[in-house]
């Protein structure tokens, strides 16, 4: 690959001049291996996205992009490390809707400066949630569900993978928009939660689409609506929640970040590479197979997107009266 060779030559040239020049210039980046901090455990969605993109960045830049899992406190532990890392582009991190748009409101104290935040690099992928109900509830559409919930307020339950997760807040957003009351039942993982919905112990749940779609296909649960702006490929028959409540969007998104103060040229360079990677057909196919939508955007667009998301979830948290941690 000529591009790769070019980068290598650039890197070599940079090494030669290294003594005389500041080693921070964007042209020679990356001249050594780069660490991507994933603030969640290995094997999850965020980890998978980071590894898929990291592998391609490896090939593109001819340097190793090492994934470092640093789970804890809903992503706060890993992001705390990212914020303290040297802002030279050699430490990057993954962030999600919960770690970078919800935790800002949900946690009273964060292990990093909330105002300085991070340097957004690029949105990587979004996963829609889908509202699934146990067939025993005998509702087939969103209006039917709303009727039932209005008739018996507070009597019906919805499961989530924890207080303040996108799955929980999708439920809260729905309650607010539809003006209904449901009882929230929280679990430690979305696996446990969907299990109890399938078994009928809990009535419904907004679940991440890939696993939920399989339960829908097997007829274990009914899907009423997806929470992305457009319909989801895995469940083409299911209407969007936005068709009932205009503007309703509650997706689980995953993006790449750099420590605050990272040189914009380096951020730009990585962002461009990520964008190109996400446009490759093989990568798109892989992500779509996981039920995710490949994204990719500029740092400025990503920053604006995060801003909108942070405000939306702050309002939802306040409206729903979710206690702050």
């Amino acid at each position: 690959m000529t591009f790769k060779r070019l980068v290598k030559i650039a890197g070599f040239a940079g090494l030669l001049m290294g003594a005389a020049f500041q080693p921070l210039s964007a042209e020679e980046y990356p001249s050594k291996s780069v660490t991507i901090i994933v603030p969640f455990a290995a094997g999850g969605n965020t980890d998978a996205f980071a590894r898929l993109v990291g592998q391609e960045l490896d090939k593109r830049f001819g340097q190793r992009f090492i994934i470092e899992n640093k789970p804890g406190a809903g992503g706060n532990v890993g992001l705390g490390d990212l914020s303290r890392a040297k802002a030279d582009g050699y430490t990057l991190g993954m962030g999600t809707v919960s770690s970078n748009a919800i935790n800002q409101t949900l946690y009273k104290v964060l292990p990093y400066d909330k105002d300085k935040g991070f340097a957004p690099v690029s949105l990587v992928a979004t996963l829609p949630n889908v509202l699934v109900v146990n067939p025993k509830l005998s509702v087939k559409t969103v209006p039917e569900l709303i009727d039932l919930l209005k008739k018996e307020p507070g009597k019906h339950t919805y499961a989530s993978s924890g207080v303040g997760t996108s799955i929980h807040l999708a439920g809260e957003l729905f309650s607010t928009r539809a003006g209904v009351k449901m009882t929230h039942v929280s679990y430690k993982s979305s696996g446990q939660a969907i299990m109890d919905v399938v078994a009928g112990h809990v009535d419904m749940m907004f679940d991440n689409i890939p696993t939920a779609a399989e339960q829908v296909k097997a007829g274990k649960v009914l899907s009423l609506a997806v929470t992305s702006a457009g319909k989801a490929d895995l469940l083409p028959e299911t209407p969007t929640m936005a068709s009932y409540f205009p503007g309703f969007e509650a997706t689980s998104w995953h993006g790449l970040f750099a420590p605050p103060g990272t040189p914009p040229e380096i951020v730009e360079k990585v962002s461009k590479a990520v964008g190109e990677i996400l446009r490759e057909p093989a990568m798109r196919q892989k992500l779509e197979g996981m039920g995710a939508k490949p994204e990719g955007n500029t740092p400025a667009e990503f920053a604006k997107f995060i801003d909108v998301e942070t405000k939306k979830w702050a309002e939802t948290i306040k409206a729903a009266g979710v206690p702050l941690q």
Binding site: G43, A48, M195, A213, E214, Q215, A218, K220
Partner: peptide, 28 residues
């Protein structure tokens, strides 16, 4: 049989399957 991970180890397995393009479910 249900496509539902019962413990953290199984959750890791499901993650591995999803990356492989197989989403475990009741039809597996």
């Amino acid at each position: 049989t249900l496509g539902i991970p019962g413990n953290p180890v199984m959750a890791l397995m499901v993650g591995a399957m999803i990356i492989q393009g197989i989403t475990p479910g009741p039809n597996v």
